[in-house]
């Protein structure tokens, strides 16, 4: 059987395997249209109802409250899509095509990479739809701002899919999903400055917010889209990159330990 030539760390066959996993995730994602629709409508409700409602009585940001929370809602979309994508390995482990993957000659690291790319694709498509709605909420794109936002979305998706995969690979049932939502997703989201400016927070809240890597990702996106940011863009990018590096490492490790 032709096993292909060596290419750096991965053999050719590993690359095909990674492609296979990605292909499967992309197909499934595009075929389950109801999921796509519901996860598009959700953030739009946030923007229209929450942004419009609260924005009517407060003034935050130069471009209006809806524009202010737009990066935050973008993050919310990616956060939910990718972390739940990762958690679904619990399901995959029990049944489905994944068992077949585990018995294939593919390395665990390759399986992880394939899955992660699948999650990133979901996150990118999902956030792409929201990005299209941006001009309705007072967002004007330039090539620079669009490129930078997509880069942040990609980093966020990579890191968060890895987080989901790491947790999911160690879980044995769906019962932990609620816990992850309460103790991981919601704190990460609400304590990131997605919905409010972080410059005038009380000390205890500001410390937590500063320790949350997502704070920097939202800040970076807001800086790119609205030109309003609390930190230099380089710091935001640096934190986002570190977020990815740490979680990819944890995720890879967790996949190797997975039974």
């Amino acid at each position: 059987m032709g096993r292909g030539v060596c290419e750096g760390w991965f053999k050719m066959s590993d690359l095909w395997g990674i492609y296979a996993l990605w292909y499967r995730e992309a197909k499934v994602f595009l075929r389950e249209k109801s999921r796509l629709v519901s996860s598009t409508v959700n953030p739009l409700i946030w923007l229209v109802a929450f942004g419009g409602g609260l924005g009517a009585s407060i003034s935050i940001g130069g471009a209006g409250y809806q524009a202010f929370i737009f990066p935050g809602v973008l993050m919310l979309v990616v956060l939910f899509t990718t972390i739940f994508f990762g958690l679904y390995v619990v399901w995959d482990k029990k049944i489905d095509f994944f068992k077949e993957v585990l018995v294939s000659p593919l390395k665990r690291t390759s399986i992880f990479v394939g899955k992660m790319l699948g999650g990133c694709t979901d996150g990118l498509i999902q956030s792409g739809i929201i990005i299209l709605f941006g001009p309705l909420f007072g967002i004007n794109y330039t090539a620079y701002s669009l490129g930078l936002v997509i880069l942040f979305v990609l980093l966020l998706a990579m890191g968060t899919t890895s987080l989901g995969l790491a947790i999911g690979s160690q879980m044995t049932s769906f019962e932990g999903f609620g816990l992850v939502q309460s103790f991981v997703i919601l704190p990460l989201f609400f304590l990131s400055g997605a919905l409010y400016p972080i410059d005038n927070l009380p000390a205890w809240l500001s410390w937590i917010t500063y320790a949350n890597p997502l704070t920097y990702i939202v800040d970076g996106m807001r800086g790119a889209l609205l030109g309003e940011s609390s930190f230099p863009i380089v710091l935001d990018l640096g934190v986002a990159a570190a977020y990815v590096a740490v979680l990819v490492a944890i995720g890879t490790f967790a996949f190797k330990k997975m039974t």
Binding site: G2, G4, M12, W16, G17, A20, Y23, E100, V101, S104
Partner: peptide, 12 residues
């Protein structure tokens, strides 16, 4: 598609 994926996974 299932078979195609399998072929990829096994380096056919």
């Amino acid at each position: 598609e299932n078979l195609y994926l399998h072929a990829l996974l096994y380096g056919v």
